[in-house]
């Protein structure tokens, strides 16, 4: 039966037709369909979305998609990654027609990510640690703390609440100040920066509070310097930085909705 649709993984800067082997979803053969100097990285499929209620199956598909994009990035340099399950109906000719129609837009985006990759940065802080240091630094708060120890239980409780509130306010000011400073430092070393909405915290950072989460488009030769900047934050007491990458520029494809 004719495979009359193409599943799109990414757009790469390559002008020839090559095979990446059977590395696609469901072990399909992944290949490029070139148009001028760019190409769509695809596999042939039936014109229907990959869909399932089976979680394990869904994960397998998504991981295969991710793997193909990584391989394309290794082989062809920076690519424009596509979201999962983008399928264009038609044979290679339909892809060619579509590439032709969107050529300048795709090329512009490819040029933008050329020699660059996406990195994610998450800055965490330890609230308790920050709170104890804020307390030690502030004479007024230390006085209040001393008073609490001398007071009766009922009054000590109320004063304790007041102290907690004051500490909390000072911690958030302190954390905010650091967030602003780090943002300026990071911004000076990246091409583009986006605030990441994903609030997920890995296990080894559990118990810490997330101060900031960014996705950055970084030039390959700037990644090391960015690492040094982040080192400075990471070395500050009470703060920890998570730095991951290089990833395909998922957050920086302007052609998010291609026509």
């Amino acid at each position: 039966m004719a495979q009359e649709a193409r599943y799109i993984y990414s757009i790469a800067k390559i002008g020839t037709r090559v095979s990446l082997g059977e590395i696609g979803i469901e072990k399909t053969e992944v290949f490029t369909i070139p148009y001028k100097d760019i190409a769509a990285v695809v596999h042939s499929c039936q014109p229907q979305a990959y869909d399932t209620l089976d979680k394990a199956q869904a994960e397998e598909w998504v991981l295969a998609h991710s793997y193909v994009i990584d391989q394309a990035m290794k082989k062809f340099g920076s690519v424009l990654p596509f979201s999962f399950d983008v399928i264009l109906k038609g044979e290679d000719s339909a892809i060619l027609e579509w590439l032709g129609k969107n050529y300048s837009l795709l090329l512009q985006d490819l040029e933008k990510v050329k020699g660059k990759a996406e990195y994610t940065i998450q800055i965490y802080y330890d609230y308790d640690d920050l709170a104890s240091r804020v307390l030690l630094r502030d004479a007024k708060l230390m006085d209040l703390k001393g008073q609490i120890e001398r007071e009766s239980r009922g009054k000590a409780y109320l004063l304790g609440k007041k102290l907690d509130q004051m500490v909390k306010a000072l911690v958030s000011i302190e954390a905010g100040r650091l967030a602003a400073k780090s943002l300026t430092d990071i911004k000076s070393q990246v091409d583009e920066l986006k605030i990441d909405g994903n609030r997920w915290t890995p296990d080894n950072y559990k118990g810490l509070s997330l101060l900031a989460s960014y996705s950055c488009l970084v030039r390959d030769d700037m990644a090391a310097r960015l690492g040094e900047t982040l080192d400075e934050i990471n070395c500050m007491e009470g703060f920890r930085v998570r730095f991951t990458g290089p990833w395909p520029a998922f957050s920086f494809v302007n052609c998010r909705e291609l026509s």
Binding site: Y50, F250, S251, V253
Partner: peptide, 26 residues
Amino acid sequence: LLNKGAVLNADLIITVAGIPLIGLNL
């Protein structure tokens, strides 16, 4: 992979692709 990256816009899904692009069950 599900929330970022390029997608085709709705018009194209209907007029060119003519298929649902997002696996809702998935």
